[in-house]
């Protein structure tokens, strides 16, 4: 299948069941809200090495936040509910509570919840207090600029991680431009994040390694420097490959983001758009690229 001059490979992205949470961070102004969100989503590119994947879903206007201040919506994903809880506790405690003027709220509804504010409250050394309003409890922890307000529990829901597209280009400049265009288009989709730097990853991985201690290693089939010495998946005139990984609260959101990314990345100089998978043996979701475009 061709999209403009780009071939869309007949393959699928293999995605995984994860658990996700949405965190609404507010602050006195947009800069501080963004600072806290960036800190919280730092070192959260891959669940393999970072224990979670996180990113900024959107920047929020005062009218979109619980306390009427500027804010940011953060999505965080891990492999199970308990892990989401642990990561939220660490990251809200170390990255949001520490940031001047911030407050932190749950951004999801549902039946599954993890305790965050009820754990962080102990930082208050006995001077913490809580307020219950409309069925939701908020903890007030005294800090040096006043109080940190954090919701007691955060809802988590079954989510989808590891959706992806891989752009194969004739050179670095064109591939980078296509990846940038794709991430911009994908960022418009709600309920997804792109956890890698600016949404793009160059060090795609395969399962396993010749070194026994490593669970994953570089994706040799897509490394242009190894075309001559490996079973390469790259066409002869491709000299650069970049991947975009997408995690979402729903499979639909992940599919929508991938579709938007493919359309935006199909440009002159991009020979193929493909996707990463493990033969369909590991992930619970197979997202076929041709089906996305047919939809």
């Amino acid at each position: 299948m061709k999209l403009k001059s780009t071939e869309i490979v007949d393959t699928f992205a293999e995605a995984f069941k994860m658990w996700g949470a949405r965190v609404i961070i507010t602050a006195a102004n947009r800069q501080w809200a963004r600072a806290a969100a960036q800190a919280m989503t730092g070192f959260a590119t891959s669940v393999i090495g970072c224990k979670c994947e996180a990113g900024i879903e959107s920047i929020l206007s005062p009218g979109q936040t619980p306390d009427g201040r500027p804010g940011a919506s953060v999505l965080l994903f891990a492999m199970d509910k308990a892990s989401v809880g642990k990561r939220l506790l660490e990251r809200i405690g170390q990255c949001v509570m520490t940031c001047p003027t911030t407050a932190c709220f749950n951004g999801l509804d549902g039946d599954n919840a993890v305790q965050v504010g009820s754990q962080l409250r102990y930082f208050g050394d006995g001077f913490q207090g809580s307020k219950k309003l409309a069925g939701r409890r908020y903890w007030r922890i005294p800090v040096m600029d006043g109080e940190f307000v954090v919701e007691e529990s955060f809802h988590v829901q079954a989510s989808v991680g590891g959706g992806n597209i891989i752009m194969l280009g004739t050179d670095e400049k064109k591939t980078l431009a296509a990846a940038t265009a794709a991430t911009r288009a994908m960022a418009e989709i709600k309920e997804v994040i792109l956890p890698f730097p600016n949404g793009v990853v160059r060090s795609g991985s395969k399962v396993g390694s010749r070194y026994k201690t490593l669970p994953a290693s570089t994706n040799t089939a897509y490394c242009p420097t190894l075309k001559a010495v490996t079973d390469s998946s790259l066409p002869p005139d491709v000299n650069c490959a970049l991947e975009i990984v997408v995690d979402g609260l729903t499979e639909t959101a992940v599919r929508d983001a991938m579709t938007a990314g493919i359309h935006a990345a199909a440009k002159p100089g991009i020979r193929q758009i493909t996707a990463g998978n493990y033969g369909g043996n590991l992930g619970q979701y197979k997202i076929n690229l041709h089906e996305l475009l047919a939809d």
């Binding site: 619980p66 306390d67 009427g68 201040r69 407050a103 307020k131 309003l133 409309a134 908020y138 007030r140 006043g146 109080e147 940190f148 307000v149």
Partner: peptide, 15 residues
């Protein structure tokens, strides 16, 4: 104690 802007009040006022 102090003069400040209690963050939780906004939740109540909106409600």
């Amino acid at each position: 104690s102090c003069t400040y802007q209690p963050g939780y009040l906004t939740l109540y006022f909106r409600y």
